[in-house]
């Protein structure tokens, strides 16, 4: 893969010669695509150059079926945004001949960590509250960015204010229909409840990250330096991201703390203050139940990919075994059927 990347960069870095790729390493995370880091060095008009990159490559099967062009566009939509930090995007390559599958390359943000457990560790005791505050300020900025909506609207559906919920629910019910390997009576009951109790219309149509949670941002004690994993991004109701960030699974063993870092009431207050949007409790609850259905759709998709042999990533087997029943347990609580 090093030589393939060298060949690719040589033809895409303007005026570059002697391109060398080193430190190529697959890294955890970004379960919808293979994620690799590497360093590159080259000569440009006699001047030595170097850069650190990430390549995200399409897998044969994964937890989610997503469009790399859309993911690339959402990253690009927030380039140079004053509040929403994202890595710089370099190249989107749809031709599989270079690396065996389509991919994109982006700048690597250095010296950060992403682990959900890391931010709960003692080195972050003094700064965890500030990071949590910033996390929801950034979400507010994503939710209120008209520029981002304008940037991606030709690539993705633009739902009506009163249709955003149905668009997403139809999609994830479809994923469950396509991927379940056995009946899902709890998820089906949740879907019936969601259709029988639709939320109020969205206050606006926003960029929705789609997987906005602790674990999908790059941080140091000094701040948040990258929002990553935009593979489920779309346009929709901004409360969707807020509810997803509240999902029980992302409490990381600290019950009652959203993302394991902040009480819900504090997160809502920060989001409302920064966005000017109102968080209707009824609407938020609807999106939390929806998040439970969506999570189940993701785990079932991974299970099907593994069972069908499209992927032999052990992570997909692990999420199937550990999270499908867990998702049902969470849905029971969200529906008021279990304590």
């Amino acid at each position: 893969m090093e030589s393939a990347l060298e060949t690719y960069l040589a033809s895409h870095l303007s005026g570059a010669s002697g391109v060398t790729v080193s430190s190529l390493l697959r890294i955890p995370g970004g379960a919808s695509r293979e994620t690799w880091m590497f360093d590159a060095s080259w000569d440009e008009s006699g001047n030595p150059q170097s850069a650190a990159f990430i390549v995200r490559k399409d897998p044969p099967g994964s937890l989610v079926e997503s469009d790399r062009e859309v993911e690339y566009a959402f990253y690009s939509a927030f380039a140079d945004h004053p509040i929403v930090p994202v890595p710089g995007m370099r190249w989107l390559e749809k031709d599989p001949q270079h690396l065996g599958a389509p991919f994109f390359i982006m700048d690597r943000i250095l010296d950060c960590e992403a682990s959900p457990r890391g931010i709960q560790a003692s080195p972050y005791d003094a700064t965890r509250d500030a990071l949590a505050h910033r996390f929801y300020e950034i979400l507010a900025a994503i939710a209120t960015s008209d520029d981002a909506v304008a940037h991606v609207r030709k690539l993705v559906p633009v739902p009506a204010l009163d249709g955003a919920w149905k668009h997403e629910l139809d999609y994830w019910e479809g994923m469950i229909n396509a991927n379940e390997m056995g009946p899902q009576p709890i998820a089906r009951a949740a879907i019936r409840w969601l259709r029988a109790n639709p939320p109020p219309p969205a206050q606006r149509i926003s960029a929705v990250h789609g997987d906005y949670r602790v674990g999908n941002f790059l941080y140091q004690p000094g701040g948040i330096f990258g929002i990553v994993d935009w593979e489920m991004a779309h346009l929709g109701d901004p409360l969707e991201d807020l509810a997803w960030s509240f999902h029980e699974l992302w409490e990381w063993g600290r019950p009652g703390l959203k993302g394991g870092i902040i009480p819900a009431t504090d997160a809502i207050a920060i989001f409302e203050q920064a966005s000017g949007l109102h968080v209707d409790p009824v609407a938020l609850h609807w999106w939390e139940v929806f998040s439970g259905v969506k999570a189940q759709g993701i785990w079932l998709t991974g299970a099907r990919s593994f069972q069908d042999g499209r992927s032999r990533e052990v992570m997909l087997a692990q999420t199937s075994w550990s999270l499908i029943n867990r998702a049902d347990e969470i849905l029971l609580r969200l529906l008021g059927r279990a304590p």
Binding site: I186, W321, S322, N325, D328, E329, L332, R337, A338
Partner: peptide, 11 residues
Amino acid sequence: ELKESTRRRHL
């Protein structure tokens, strides 16, 4: 029964 089904599968 649905609640019980999650208890049976709990890991």
